[in-house]
């Protein structure tokens, strides 16, 4: 049985009498039991609406969804007992202490901290020294850990994490993903969203999502190997200038800045080696220091799919 199924979900928000924003545009997918499934996309993609529908906090306009085999509309009470939800915005009680928050959530679900302590132990020990501090006074990283503990304390079968790593530095992000892997090992299904494309490879399967549409669903590896073009990375001394020069070349199809390189694709295969391309372009005084053929990242794939979609519409 799939842990989550989403079937032709549509959700629109009315802005005024005439206009509405489509948050989810007829999307369908499913999450397997025990899987770490990532929703990868920017703000406004529809990730939060989807989480709220799946956690029974929001009704879709049409379509259906199940969580643990239960219908999100009819069986909302049972679903609420079985899922853990960490919303994007910090939603614990700011004026309760760390320990009081945790005890509160345990009590609401008719359990105790002690009963499921094994689940949160790894995470909780890191914030335990501050257990008497009010949640509102915690740092971002510690709030995130407490929120995860509170979402776990009733031993959910599925965990919904809405942008748990947004605004968190790269060291804490790495630590957070290691915690998720350990939870997965304990059999918990995890549906997690993130705007950071580099986190996509830490999920088993991902859906790339943009303005309410799923661009692609696959394993990160599958998404990368479906990239249909040859991708080149180009480096020079004046990267800002080089970006403009490369874009003005008739043979260049796309050119995007990617850290220390620009990633480019060509309109047709020029049948030239990287060295020959570099020579050809340097003859046009582009001052390129390096041209190499590279494997795309998930971000390359996302950009390409975004461009295709905007061309099609």
């Amino acid at each position: 049985m799939a842990a989550v199924t989403v079937d032709h979900l549509i959700k629109k928000y009315r802005q005024d009498k005439k206009t509405s924003i489509t948050a989810l545009n007829n999307i369908s997918f499913s999450v397997k039991e025990g899987e770490i499934f990532g929703l990868i996309g920017p703000d406004g993609a529809g990730k939060t609406s989807l989480f709220r529908i799946l956690t029974t906090l929001l009704l879709a306009d049409s379509g259906s969804a199940t969580v643990c085999g239960l219908d999100v509309v009819k069986d909302f009470r049972q679903i609420r007992k079985q899922v853990g939800y960490m919303p994007g915005r910090f939603s614990l009680y700011q004026d309760l202490t760390v320990e009081e928050n945790l005890r509160f959530f345990a009590t609401v679900f008719d359990t105790t901290i002690e009963e499921n302590y094994h689940l949160i132990k790894d995470i909780y020990v890191q914030i335990e020294p501050f257990k008497n501090r009010r949640a509102g006074k915690l740092s971002g990283g510690m709030k995130q850990k407490l929120a995860l503990c509170c979402a776990l304390i009733h031993k959910p079968t599925i965990l919904f994490l809405d942008e748990p790593t947004t605004g968190v530095d790269t060291v804490s992000r790495k630590e957070f993903w290691e915690m998720l892997k350990r939870l997965k090992d304990q059999g918990i299904t995890i549906l997690v969203s993130t705007p950071y494309m580099d986190e996509a490879t830490l999920c088993e399967r991902i859906a790339l999502i943009q303005t309410g549409n799923i661009l692609s669903i696959n394993t990160p590896e599958g998404i990368i190997s479906n990239y249909p073009e040859i991708l080149l990375a180009v480096k020079g001394d004046d990267m800002s200038h080089l970006l403009k020069s490369l874009r003005s070349l008739p043979e260049v199809k796309s050119c995007n800045a990617f850290g220390e390189y620009h990633h480019i694709t060509l309109k047709k295969d020029l049948k030239l080696s990287e060295t020959d391309l570099q020579k050809k372009w340097n003859d046009q005084s582009l001052q390129i220091k390096e041209v190499i053929s590279i494997r795309p990242t998930v971000e390359d794939c996302f950009i390409r799919l975004m461009m295709e979609t905007s061309k099609a519409s």
């Binding site: 996309g41 920017p42 703000d43 993609a45 947004t166 605004g167 705007p195 494309m197 943009q210 970006l243 995007n256 800045a257 971000e299 996302f302 950009i303 975004m306 461009m307």
Partner: peptide, 16 residues
Amino acid sequence: EPTGGVDPVTRRQFWE
């Protein structure tokens, strides 16, 4: 943190 949460294409346009 001017580009937090922005899509990858817009993020690059922002840097331009």
